[in-house]
């Protein structure tokens, strides 16, 4: 396992550099958004002198100084050098929602986005693997055609349509589930189902392809020749090999699902980060943009690492040597 250890160490060493690059690029792009985050879009404006002074107070008049002071805040350097009050890693207050710090908002809303994302991925695995395996075992059959069409629908119908349809079905007609909002397990079902469908469709296609390929492999014929039952063949021998592509898809898919979906969060009125992030960009809420992007980048890097490790562990044929 030295290969794996080396891989983990190498990747972890890379993390700060990746994050610094992300910080720099995001900062540059966010700074280029026109306008002043402290100013409201409509309504009465404070006098010019005030606007200028407020910009200065938040370093918004000087990109260079904002870049470095904010970098100091989020790395904890300013905390170390300062009087060590307040949070070590300080994302600062949201520029547009002044009663909140970015740290508060992320710690409130990231778990919500993660809950929806995780349950969507689990649902996607369940739906996708079942459909893919059923289809792949009998390619060309009716089962295959039905599961194939369902997965095409899952990929191609936009989330807001599926979301609204599910709301109508579960909330209005059946009256089983609440309409939007957050607070109990009932609130999780519809949004995670809506979010899971495109992922489920991909997983189904990957699984189907994998099953078809493995079913034709020589070792399966050998296992069958031994007289092993179909169930055992599929579960013990086909699936572990056929699902490797699904596993490698799982990393990016989990990351994508966790980062929250703007559309799903909007339709189901879920207080997650995805929607907030879009608002932050539109409103040029610099601290919010930087905070969310950095937290997500860190999560992404770590998730990818986890998937690589997992991949090697599940399939010992894969050699990890740090590349």
């Amino acid at each position: 396992m030295t290969g794996m250890r080396r891989l983990i160490v190498m990747r972890l060493v890379q993390v700060p550099f990746i994050l610094l690059a992300v910080y720099t690029i995001t900062f540059t792009l966010a700074w280029l958004i026109p306008g002043n985050p402290l100013e409201k879009d409509e309504g009465r404006r404070p006098p010019e002198a005030i606007a200028t002074a407020m910009q200065a107070q938040w370093n918004l008049d000087d990109p260079w100084s904002f870049y470095w002071s904010y970098l100091g805040d989020i790395t904890g350097v300013n905390w170390l050098l300062g009087d060590q009050t307040g949070p070590v890693i300080d994302f600062g207050p949201s520029l547009r929602h002044e009663n909140w710090t970015v740290g508060d908002i992320i710690s409130d809303q990231l778990p919500v986005s993660m809950t929806v994302g995780l349950s969507a991925i689990l649902l996607a695995l369940l739906i996708g693997i079942t459909m893919g395996t059923l289809g792949g075992l009998r390619p060309g059959s009716w089962t295959d055609r039905i599961t194939g069409s369902v997965s095409i629908i899952g990929v191609s119908i936009p989330a807001f349509v599926i979301g609204t349809a599910l709301l109508m079905l579960g909330g209005v007609w059946l009256q089983w589930l609440p309409i939007g909002g957050w607070g109990s397990w009932k609130h999780i079902l519809l949004p995670s189902l809506a979010l899971s469908l495109p992922f489920a469709a991909w997983i189904a296609r990957l699984a189907r392809q994998g099953v078809i390929e493995v079913m034709h492999a020589d070792f399966i014929r050998a296992v069958r020749a031994k007289g092993v039952s179909q169930q055992v063949v599929v579960v013990r021998h086909v699936l572990p090999n056929a699902l490797l592509p699904v596993l490698s898809y799982l990393g990016p898919a989990t990351a994508a699902a966790l980062t929250g979906s703007f559309v799903i969060e909007k339709v189901f009125a879920i207080p997650g980060l995805g929607m907030h992030f879009v608002d932050a960009v539109l409103g040029k809420d610099l601290t919010m943009i930087m905070g969310v992007v950095l937290v997500y980048s860190a999560m992404l890097v770590l998730l990818n690492l986890a998937v690589d490790v997992m991949y090697a562990w599940v399939d010992p044929r894969i050699q990890l040597n740090g590349h």
Binding site: L167, M168, V172, G180, G181, V267, F268, A269
Partner: peptide, 18 residues
Amino acid sequence: IRSYPDPNTALLAFDRGD
């Protein structure tokens, strides 16, 4: 006070008496 960013959802919720 709840926030419903999507007007359709808000209307459905109102319709149901939430």
